[in-house]
Write a protein that binds this DNA or RNA. Sequence first.
DNA 1: TTGGAAAGTCAACATGACTGACATAATATC
DNA 2: GATATTATGTCAGTCATGTTGACTTTCCAA
Lengths: 170, 170
Amino acid sequence: MSEPGAGAKQGGENLLFLTDEQLRKGIEAMFFAYRAFTADPDRILEGLAYGRAHHRAVHFINRQPGLTVNTLLSVLGVTKQSLNRVLRTLIEDGLVETRVGRKDKRERHLYLTEKGAGLERELSEAQRARMRAAYRAAGPSAVAGFREVLEAMMDPDLRRYYTTMKDGNA
Amino acid sequence: MSEPGAGAKQGGENLLFLTDEQLRKGIEAMFFAYRAFTADPDRILEGLAYGRAHHRAVHFINRQPGLTVNTLLSVLGVTKQSLNRVLRTLIEDGLVETRVGRKDKRERHLYLTEKGAGLERELSEAQRARMRAAYRAAGPSAVAGFREVLEAMMDPDLRRYYTTMKDGNA
DNA sequence: TTGGAAAGTCAACATGACTGACATAATATC
DNA sequence: GATATTATGTCAGTCATGTTGACTTTCCAA
């Protein structure tokens, strides 16, 4: 967009970081990193009767206590049938509790119980440990770039959600 | 690692980017971005009788033509039974062909056919389009940071593989 | 020649997605 | 007040992808 740099296929710009080869490396990096990223919580979940879907539900309920089923649905991007199976077991096992909406009594607001918050902490801590190590190894400016690229990659609706929740509650 | 910056909980260093809050945002960014990252090829695969697993197989066979089943197995991190089901359909449909190893005749070396390469290009182009847009939006130095953090996040074995293949063949 | 590695196959099962159909309750609209 | 819509929950069935375990075939190498 600015400097007419050294030759690249696409034009007169300095777009060497946009070659197909660079993009393919980025794709592979996402694949390998995401696998590692989910591996630690998966290992914890293994013993329990829960899976990755439960982890995600618990994560977002923790992030935004009192969110409705519908909101969680659109954040997770799954069908209500799929989410319902997950929520049902979490409620039965006393990890999540629902409260009927005050304004709109059709809505169910979701909260973690103490027990649920405990599991969330355990899973999250495992995942954060890896993230922390990666952040530390790469340094603050790399982390900023990491976040920028991921953000640009998201679908607009979720990017909106993501940035709204940015540096949100504890 | 360098500048003794403003106060952080952890010590005298500038570790504000390592707060739990920052780490949680990174976790969510990974989750949302990965979903978007797989969405485009998934849409293409939908019509065909293939899934994400087929895409991954085709991707790595394209990256490293002639790799053995065992190598692909460890790159993908699945069981041979799981991979076999995928490979069988790809071979039956004429997207992948195997050649018996010259040195070791037990090994099967995997190659894409013309047809297979066609599908790979289609899937890959969809995925690269999103990656390209994100790279362009974020800029070269953000991309460098992105790659650094992802690399630091990988499991050591796959990081080794990844860096070995770095900017490898077309 | 025999042990073990590489590959392939069969069966059974779990998880987490999906669609479609339907029920209930509460809100919103006409 | 009747009707439509929304939010949620549930049942049933399907699919893709992963898993274990058991077993066979092929073939290299000690």
